[in-house]
Simulated scan of single mutants.
Amino acid sequence: MLISSHLFAHHARIRSATVDTTSDTPKYVYVHTPARYIWTPEYDPRGQGRIVRSAAPAFRAIDRRRAAEPIALAANSRFVRDRIARSWGREAVVIPPPVDVRAIADVATWERQLSDDDRRVLDALPEVFVLGASRFATYKRLDLVIDTAERIGLPAVIAGRGPDEAALRDRAVNARTPVSVIASPSDALLRGLYRAASVLLFPAIEDFGIVPVEAQVVGTPVVTGPVGGQLETYDPGVTGVTATGRSPRELAEATSTALDLP
């Protein structure tokens, strides 16, 4: 069995109608993370409710027992490897996930794929702006992109899709600096936003962080907080800057530094 797991897929077993083949089936698991909401609820709002917190110890015991079954584990970052060790007491080899850097670097090809609407969006962007790109979900902390842009007096662009879209649009309308929310951008448009941005601000505590890798392909520096797998994807002081914390003040200081990178 080859399993990709970020919640409980590693619990999978193979059974026939008459024979339990679990003990005879080798299992190899690529781990994006042990389930955050039971192991690191401080990083996942789903784990912070009273019901989940009360049930978490039982789920952790089951999860740790089932995580002992695979022959080998791979983690998508050193950050996740260390979480696996703490959560499951297992070692894992680090295998970063694939990122299609060739397609992103092939600017001529993806520019031809821009629709007329995409081009109008790009043409309307300010010359200098801060980009936040990810799923519109609370733990991604795109609100901090807007807060930071306000603090340094620059426009912000928020790109992605997800359940927090309405809240982000409300925050954008009331911001003290221009904020554009671009929902469900095409791949070509997202790459255009990476290229046009002055800096990518990525406040999330991420297991790996593909978005910062994609932005760097087209030469855009990244700014992240001080915790997470995304720290493994850029060269501090060269292609990105690590903020000392995730407050708007700390992120603004790091963003100002990133804007001066060559």
Results as ranks from 00 to 15, higher is better:
Ala159Ile: 11
Ala105Leu: 12
Leu114His: 09
Pro163Glu: 14
Leu168Asn: 04
Glu111Lys: 15
Ala159Arg: 07
Leu154Glu: 00
Val128Pro: 00
Phe129Arg: 00
Ile95Thr: 08
Leu168Trp: 05
Pro96Thr: 11
Trp110Arg: 07
Val145Leu: 05
Ile152Lys: 07
Asp116Gln: 04
Asp118His: 09
Ile152Ser: 05
Val128Tyr: 00
Ile158Thr: 08
Gly162Ala: 06
Leu154Ile: 01
Leu142His: 03
Phe136His: 00
Glu165His: 08
Trp110Ile: 08
Arg169Pro: 05
Val128Glu: 13
Val130Leu: 00
Ser134Met: 03
Ser115Arg: 09
Val101Cys: 07
Ala167Phe: 02
Asp100Leu: 02
Arg120Phe: 03
Val121Cys: 11
Asp106Ile: 06
Asp164Ser: 14
Leu144Glu: 01
Arg171Met: 13
Glu127Ile: 00
Val157Cys: 06
Arg151Thr: 03
Asp164Arg: 15
Val101Gly: 01
Pro97Trp: 05
Arg141His: 04
Pro155Phe: 07
Leu114Trp: 10
Val121Asp: 11
Tyr139Arg: 11
Asp117Glu: 15
Asp117Phe: 04
Leu114Cys: 12
Ala166Glu: 10
Val130Lys: 02
Leu122Asn: 04
Ser115Pro: 06
Leu131Thr: 03
Val107Asp: 14
Thr138Ser: 11
Pro163Ala: 14
Ala167Arg: 12
Thr148Leu: 02
Thr138Trp: 10
Ser134His: 09
Pro96Leu: 14
Asp106Phe: 12
Arg141Ser: 04
Ile152Trp: 13
Asp143Pro: 00
Ala108His: 15
Arg161Glu: 13
Asp170Pro: 01
Arg119Leu: 01
Tyr139Leu: 00
Ala108Ser: 15
Arg141Glu: 02
Lys140Asp: 11
Ala149Tyr: 13
Val107Arg: 15
Lys140Phe: 11
Ala156Ile: 08
Arg120Lys: 10
Ile152Gly: 01
Val130Asp: 00
Ala108Gly: 15
Glu127Asn: 03
Leu142Met: 01
Asp147Thr: 04
Phe129Val: 02
Ala156Asn: 05
Ile95Tyr: 13
Arg135Phe: 00
Pro98Arg: 13
Ala172Lys: 08
Gly153Tyr: 05
Thr109Asp: 14
Asp118Leu: 12
Ile158Met: 00
Pro126Gly: 06
Leu125Asp: 08
Arg169Cys: 06
Arg161Gly: 15
Arg161Trp: 14
Arg151Leu: 09
Lys140Thr: 06
Pro96Ser: 12
Arg169Met: 11
Leu125Trp: 09
Arg120Gln: 15
Arg161His: 14
Pro98Val: 04
Gly160Lys: 03
